[in-house]
């Protein structure tokens, strides 16, 4: 399906009113909602993520774009359930127990939603039990975020809980988290930046 240029531009320019109008107009024209998401909103978010990774835009622009995308998702999501749309994966994202920082986690949520995943935002200060609930609810990838060196160690408990369950992948990230730490605790994946999260989730789901 071709890209809805108006929707693509509205997300890219972080104009939430225009996004909502463009989505409604496209639905009125009979456009498949799944296509609006995957062929217009996802490419726009990918472009913003790339610009963020390149240092061309910053957190305020990312959050503005996320808010604009959400204005479209609020209309689209209820309709996706009634269509034959299947998300490309179900992911849960949370900041680990003891840590109240959520900017990085929010960026990951946004980049994953903007890549077509169904994302559950678990919030901050998440104990293992929250990840268990998400897995029981159908998430197959669990993303753990932390900003503090003292809280990232909790990720080991989340990884340990799901280590014997090959159907569940645990990915870790956050400012102090390193590839070496991720390997030491046995995580299935590590994303250095929020903009990498979608690629890492995709690789995990592909069994790489």
């Amino acid at each position: 399906m071709p890209v809805d240029q108006e929707l693509f531009d509205a997300v890219r320019q972080a104009d939430r009113d225009r996004v909502a109008e463009a989505v409604r107009a496209a639905i009125d024209r009979g456009a498949p909602v799944s296509s609006l998401l995957m062929n217009s909103m996802v490419p726009a978010m990918r472009e913003i993520g790339d610009r963020f990774a390149a240092g061309e835009v910053y957190i305020p622009e990312m959050l503005m774009a996320a808010r604009a995308m959400q204005a479209g998702l609020d209309i689209i999501e209820p309709l996706l359930g009634t269509s034959d749309h299947e998300p490309i994966g179900r992911v849960a994202v949370g900041t680990v127990k003891g840590d109240m920082h959520d900017i990085g986690k929010n960026l990951v949520v946004m980049m994953l939603k903007g890549s077509g995943y169904e994302v559950t935002d678990l919030g901050v200060d998440c104990p293992v039990e929250k990840y268990e609930e998400a897995a029981a609810g159908g998430a197959t990838v669990l993303c753990c975020s932390a900003l503090l060196t003292s809280t990232m160690t909790y990720m080991e408990q989340v990884v340990g809980r799901f280590q014997k369950d090959p159907a569940i992948k645990v990915i870790v990230g956050g400012a102090p988290v390193t590839q070496r730490f991720a390997e030491e605790i046995g995580a299935d994946g590590f994303a250095e930046h929020a903009s990498e999260a979608a690629r890492v989730v995709s690789a995990c789901l592909a069994g790489e």
Binding site: M100, G123, S150
Partner: peptide, 14 residues
């Protein structure tokens, strides 16, 4: 503000 046994105090943003 949330206080923890063995972590820094943190503001409850929500």
């Amino acid at each position: 503000v949330e206080f923890f046994e063995d972590q820094p105090a943190a503001i409850v943003e929500s």
